[in-house]
């Protein structure tokens, strides 16, 4: 294993993580809700009375975030290497997988691990492992 120190950004990543933790904490303590993105979005496709508004508001904030960020400074540059077919296959896997697995990086990875829940530890270990293996195949064996 070799660490890529040119791309390593521990401080901004830690700061972003603290912001994510803060948002999670406020939503939990004020509204009594878990900030799990796939769960929040999934609930919109399974509408029950009185349970829609906060989900729409949260997603609106999330979608609006880059617009607000842009007001203060330029957005960091991003690079998406995946082509259209890969994006579609990946999106389907993420959509189906997070709902069957009851959570994603935020629901299991942050909220679940913060509760030291064994179920979320298992899910996080498995999706990280699948991510490592997928990138290994895609980047080092196929290309």
């Amino acid at each position: 294993m070799m660490i890529d120190f040119e791309l390593f950004t521990p401080w901004s990543s830690l700061a972003g993580g603290l912001l994510i933790g803060l948002a999670t904490a406020v939503l939990l303590l004020f509204n009594g809700r878990i900030a799990g993105i796939s769960g929040i979005v999934g609930g919109l496709l399974r509408p029950t009375a009185g349970d829609i508004g906060w989900r729409v508001a949260f997603v609106a904030g999330l979608v609006g975030a880059p617009l607000v960020y842009e007001l203060a400074s330029g957005l960091p540059s991003v690079r998406v290497d995946a082509d259209t077919v890969t994006l579609i296959v990946a999106g389907l896997l993420v959509g189906v997988g997070t709902r069957y697995g009851s959570g994603c990086t935020s629901g299991h990875g942050v909220c679940g691990l913060s509760q030291l829940a064994p179920r979320s530890m298992a899910a996080t270990a498995l999706f990280m492992l699948a991510g490592f293996v997928t990138v290994f195949f895609a980047r080092h064996l196929i290309v």
Binding site: V80, G101, S102, A138
Partner: peptide, 15 residues
Amino acid sequence: LVLGALAFGAGWGLA
């Protein structure tokens, strides 16, 4: 949970 997490991780790694 196991299959869902594995599928999610694969999709995450792809894109």
